[in-house]
Design a protein around this nucleic acid. Sequence first.
DNA 1: CCATCTTAGTCCCCCACAAGAACCC
DNA 2: CGGGGTTCTTGTGGGGGACTAAGAT
Length: 399
Amino acid sequence: MGYNCDFCGDQRPVVYCRSDAACLCLSCDRNVHSANALSKRHSRTLLCERCNSQPAFVRCVEERVSLCQNCDWMGHGTSTSNSRHKRQAINCYSGCPSSAELSSIWPFFQQPPSAGESSCERELGLMSINENIASTSWGPMENNISQDNTGIAITNDTCNSDKESSMGESSARLLDQPSGSKDTSLPKLCCPQTKYPGLSEDDLYDDFNMDEVDLNLEKYEELFGMTLNHSEELLENGGIASLFGTKDMPAADSDCQVAAPAEGSSVGLVNAIQPACSNAASADSMMSNKTDSILYFTARRPHPGESSAGDYQDCGASSMLLMGEPPWCPPCTETSFTSATRTDAVMRYKEKKKTRMFEKRVRYASRKARADVRKRVKGRFVKAGDAYDYDPLSPTRSF
DNA sequence: CCATCTTAGTCCCCCACAAGAACCC
DNA sequence: CGGGGTTCTTGTGGGGGACTAAGAT
């Protein structure tokens, strides 16, 4: 990947769009993501200033540099003298924020040459869905990270996808937004590193927009069946990124989520559910009960074409797991972790990645709805009125 | 150890047609 | 420049054939 904007190929890229897997300059970011309502939902974050190819997730205060997880690890690993550097989590945003708004999101963000207010900016205020209700409290609420922080149980990789961002926003708002302080003028923000203490299911339900999320139940058996090699499985699934409750099984189009049923309806952390979900068969049966209260744990799944580095660093949780500290394990001493361990984990992850399937993404729900009810002959669509051997609506044959 | 066969798993094409995109007037 | 009409393209899911890998003989 070069060091120029993926769109114009001219300017130096500043932000990274995960949905597009593209590094963009601010101008192109605004142009590209003002195209339509969907593109406005793309979550973007700063580009790593070290590798210039991965999304930054943390900013080193001392070095004044934004870093992706890999570069952060390289620069602030436990074995380095910089491991005590104070770092701040970098929030994601969506919509088309102005430079000033970006500065409010990222206090360290230097205001680039004015690009003028886009039409997107103006339209943003008109959007009816709950896209602009992110709290302005993100800025001051910087999630400081230090190497001492070992309690990483759940992180929120809401920067990953559009849907996730909306979900992350929901939960994050619940946790962090002072009541009545919604600012509809700001772009949607999400926080990459947020814990969810004391979150009630009802709270989640209230703010969870079902239309925004779908569930792609891929390799759930691995998630539920994880017994020994938890970290590897989480690597496989990209890491448990965030969790949200829901009352119905949605059907939309995010490709980065793994659903995990939990017994009962209480919301729990990942480490709390993993022993209860060790039976793939029961998981399967639970999957069929789509209307039951189910916990959905969203996890980052890398898209085809993403670099291996980005694959595991896309999710805070997974990367933390790579660092040898799964949340359900007692904190390890610093010396217990070696680069060999990490390398080994990465190798295992890459190995499994080769065998992974990437499920289809439904782009048009209406077409899917039609296909779902069309009559078929040996799986093929047949003309209306022709004989068929399979009718999704009624398992009968016409001949 | 190699060749052959069996089994299991995965991938990809096919179909009709509505929706959406592109084009023209 | 916008609206209406026409034409072209896209995408949707289940079944089955082709293909590959692993294991057995």
